[in-house]
Computed example of a mutant assay.
Amino acid sequence: MNIDKIIEEIKFDDRGLVPAIVQDVNTKKVLMLAYMNKESIRKTLEEKQVCYYSRSRKELWIKGATSGNTQKLQGFYYDCDKDSILLVVEQTGAACHTGEISCFFNEVIPAENEETDVLKELYSLLRERKRNPKEGSYTNYLFDKGLDKILKKVGEETSEVIIGAKNKNKEELVYEISDLVYHLLVLMVNENISIKDIKDELSQRRK
């Protein structure tokens, strides 16, 4: 990758800036809009941790340097006019300074056919709970108790799934499977296993 050539291709405005749209690699949600200059683009491409240019402070800032809500670069694109950038990132924690996952939470006209990947969103929420505990959260109770407690719950929910299946009750079975999936995701977060890790393993088996 020739970083100098990439930077030469991009058209910056009269302030030396270019807008960057940020998308979550897992949920596909648009997270935020920020600005980059040549130096921040170079730093981002070299270090794979997203760096922006603050127009108010007039300095570079690495996303999450103080909050811990970092963005690991997964993809970098620029548009047909070469005057805007799309960053695809692995988001840790909330992207917005308000604590919301995305800065675009002010809903005016909801997209009727908008589909969200609830498993990926739940996984992201569980990771956020582990990093930033919330008082009274059942998820944090599990993390605090540790691996043995999480495994005990996975075992219990597995038994409930078996009972639900034997009862031939679809509604009960769906409920119990949902409980099991939740606890499995908690286990995955606790053991630093991503949804991509599981998908990669299943893809290998399919081959």
Rank of each mutant, 00 (worst) to 15 (best):
G99D: 08
V189T: 05
P110R: 08
L33P: 10
V88L: 13
E121C: 10
G136K: 15
T116M: 12
K28M: 06
V50S: 01
D148F: 05
L126F: 11
V174R: 13
F104N: 02
K58V: 00
S137F: 06
E115C: 01
L45S: 11
K5G: 04
N132G: 01
E47T: 14
H97Q: 13
K58T: 05
Q49G: 02
E8G: 06
N106H: 09
R127F: 01
S178L: 02
I193S: 09
V25T: 01
Y182W: 03
K199R: 15
N26L: 03
M32C: 05
N140H: 03
T139S: 09
Q91V: 02
G146P: 15
S159Q: 12
F76L: 07
Y35F: 15
K120E: 11
N140Q: 05
E112C: 01
I195V: 13
Y182E: 15
R205Y: 12
Y123N: 05
L202N: 14
G164Q: 00
S124N: 10
S54A: 06
T92C: 09
R131E: 14
N69H: 14
A94Q: 10
Y138H: 03
F104A: 07
R127Q: 15
N113K: 13
Y78T: 05
P133W: 06
L86W: 02
G75T: 06
N192D: 14
